[in-house]
Each structure stands twice: as C-alpha cells, then as structure tokens.
Write a protein that binds this DNA or RNA. Structure first.
Lengths: 216, 216
DNA sequence: ATGTTATTGTGAAAAAAATAACAGCGTTAA
DNA sequence: TTAACGCTGTTATTTTTTTCACAATAACAT
C-alpha cells in the first residue's frame, strides 16, 4: 500500500521530472534503466532517485535496474488522476498562448478544457484548437467540466480577483504566474511561478560565481 | 561586512519577494514595516523574515520595525549588480514575448539587452521596443555588451545547443524554460522553470486535498 | 553450480532548513 | 522618570531533506 501522506512538494517535482526521461527512453524502446541514469537526467543523485522510487512502492532489479514501462505505470498511478484531469487557463496574452502550446505537446492525461480572458477583442480567437471564452462563462464551464485546477496567467492587478472566482467555482489547485501572493482558503493549493524572482536568483548566483573565480 | 558565502538559493528567492512588497510600500509612502507584515506578504513566517534580514546585516528597530527605504537599499546592495545587469533572451515565440513584457515593467537594474531567434520570419520584428536579432549575431552582441545572464525560451530540441552558444559567449547564468535538463560546466548557474512539473504538482496536491477532505 | 559484478533497498548519519523561544531594547504613555 | 508594551536579533530546538554506506540480490560468465 502506497503511503501518499508524507510526501513532499519537492519529491513530487522530482518524480515528474523522472517521468519525462522515462518517456524519452520508452519512445526509444529502452527497456531498463539504472537509478544513476535517471539521476543524471534530472540533475540529482542516484540515492535520491532510489529513495524517491521507494516511496512509490516499486521495486527494481539489482542487475537490470528499473523496468521502464513498469516504473512509468507506477508513476502514472501515483501522480495522475484516473480518467485525466481537466485544467482551465485564464489569460490569453502571450503567456497564456505559450502555455497552450506547452500543453498541446503534453500527454493526454492533462488537457486544457477552456481558456478565458476578459478582453472582448480576444474572445472567440482560437489557438492550437482552443478557443478563448469570456470570463462570464467561467463558473459554468468550470463546474460543468468538473475542473479542479486552474492556471492564472493574468496581470498582477487582476490576479486576486480571478483567483477568487476560481475558488468560488470549486477549483482547489492554482498555478499562479502573476507577480502577486494570492490569498486563498487553506484547502486550495497554490504553486507560484515567479519569473522576476527566478531572474534575480540567476543574476545573483551568476555574479557570485564570477566573483569567486576572480578573487581567490 | 556581509557574508555572501553561505547563502542559499531559497533565501535569495525570499529576499527577492520581500523586495517586491517593499517596493509597493514605498510607492504608497509607507515608512516602516514589521517582520510579520513582510512575512504575510510573502507567505512565510516572521522569524524567517527576521532571519533573512539578519543575513543582510541590516538592523531594524524594536519599536518601529524596519525602515522601508533603508531595507530596500540594503537589499539592492545585496542582490543587484552595481551599474545594472544586462540580460539576453533567446526565443521570440509566445513565451519570449511574454517575458519581454514582464521585463518592460521591471526596475531599471535589470534590462533585456537583446532578443534572438533563429526563425528568419521573426528577425527584425519589434516588441516593447526590443528588436529580434539573428542568432548569428549572438556571440558578438553578448560579448560587446558584457552580458552574463541569458534566458532560454526555445523549444526543447534546441535548448542544449543554445545553452552551449551562451556558455561559449561568456554567459554564466541561465534561466531555462525549455523542458530539458541542460548540461553545462560547473561555473554556470542554471535555474530551471519547469512548467510541466509545476502543473503536475498542482494536480497532485489539489487531488490530495480533495481526497483528504472527502475521506476522514 | 558457483563465483563475480554492479546494482538495488534502506537504516543510519549528516546537512540544511524552518520554527520556537526569549532576552534586550526602543518607543510611548502615564 | 519610569513602567509597560511589542518588536527585533539571535540562539537553541526541531523538523525535514539529503547523503552515505553497505547488506542483500539478480544476472551472467565460467
């Protein structure tokens, strides 16, 4: 029996990464893989991979490593929602469009059910087969499709309002690209992608490396 | 003297977030702020904030809290490159354009020096005052402008090649949006923004919350 | 059969991060 | 002037996460 209780944020992130590599292997008809190979592809250590895999309850083979298909299946069973998960996207700007094309290349388990924007000029436009709807239809579309996860790609000043709409429509997982910390009830999980912070981190550590290479 | 040595990735991320809130306060003419207010804005705890601020070497006042301007200055001194940092962006697709508009609203300390793409149809196009250049000019532009940080917003199959070009041109900090783990020399810092993984995390934890609310 | 090899699975140790706890101290108000 | 208040600065504690280390083991060659 898998214990899904005490699993951390970080572990899920890594499992998701491992899966991408496994997909690649599977496409190339590779049958087995060692922990250090997975580790290498994800930029982590091999004990880390073994430990993460242990959580899944999957057992590898000391001589052949992990069976690619079996491990993929195990990961899918662990990470994916049975029957697939529908996601809504709010914001049909450049970022929204970029996200749509990310998803169009995705596995079928995750699909964008609908895209919304409050700019009348954008409503009705189609990209990658997805049509932009008016925000007025948000609650009804989300509820009819039983959507639980929303992606927020709107300007910061509309983010909280949009998040409130999402929560009211029954969504309890939000991926937030807006440069704001959202206030949401405790039963809503928010993952934030903060591009400004990411850039500042890169700038800082890149500079730090340069300084360390120059001085000592 | 500030000790920049043993600072972690996560701390820098938080400092960057604090700064955004401080900016907001400053615009609103707020003079002082308490640790718990900063904590609240960034979704962390107040001891965490005090601890992070401690690293900067800045001291607050037990009765008034932190002086907004002084703390901002301290953060700038710590995080920013004196004279500003120029950044190059590769990839003029939807994501690239979204990033350009993110930056156009940014503080002047970070600026996009140039944007590149290898699609001839895009070269010469201008967005937010930034013109798209050919990849052929990459090395010369990057070196002439002394650029150290690059943003990678190209499809996965071109990511490694582009990263190699960046490294060859003297860049030692990369923000990678492509769905690949880059292989770079140890003196190059890579920060990855993995949208697929982020979505899968949200899906997982949203589902977990639903299950925990239904069952017990 | 059996020895060899390279890997897994996992408890134990170490490291890192977050949290708690509280002494010390400006400020304010009496 | 002084007492009360509520916050900061910092040390200690706890929790979480990662790494280490090695016994157990399946496959393969001999």
């Amino acid at each position: 029996m898998i214990n899904r209780d005490k699993i951390s944020d970080k572990t899920i992130g890594r499992l998701s990464q491992y899966r991408r590599f496994l997909n690649l292997l599977h496409e190339n008809k590779v049958k087995n893989v060692f922990s250090y190979q997975i580790a290498n592809s994800a930029g982590v250590t091999s004990p880390q991979v073994r430990r993460d895999v242990m959580l899944l309850g999957y057992n590898g083979n000391p001589a052949k490593g992990y069976n690619v298909e079996a491990l993929m299946e195990c990961l899918a069973h662990y990470l994916d929602t049975p029957g697939g998960e529908g996601v809504v996207l709010v914001g049909f700007g450049n970022l929204g469009r970029a996200l749509i094309s990310y998803f169009s290349k995705q596995r079928p388990n995750l699909s964008i059910v609908a895209v919304f924007d409050n700019d009348p000029a954008l409503i009705g436009r189609v990209i990658h087969g997805v049509r932009c709807c008016s925000m007025e239809d948000f609650a009804s579309v989300a509820q009819q499709n039983n959507v639980r996860v929303g992606i927020l790609a709107v300007p910061a000043d509309q983010a909280q309002l949009t998040a409130d709409l999402m929560v009211a429509a029954g969504i309890n997982g939000i991926l937030n690209f807006a440069l704001t910390t959202l206030q949401v009830p405790p039963h809503v999980y928010v993952e934030r992608v903060d591009i400004t912070t990411s850039v500042e981190k890169v700038v800082f550590f890149a500079r730090k490396i340069r300084q360390e290479r120059t001085l000592p």
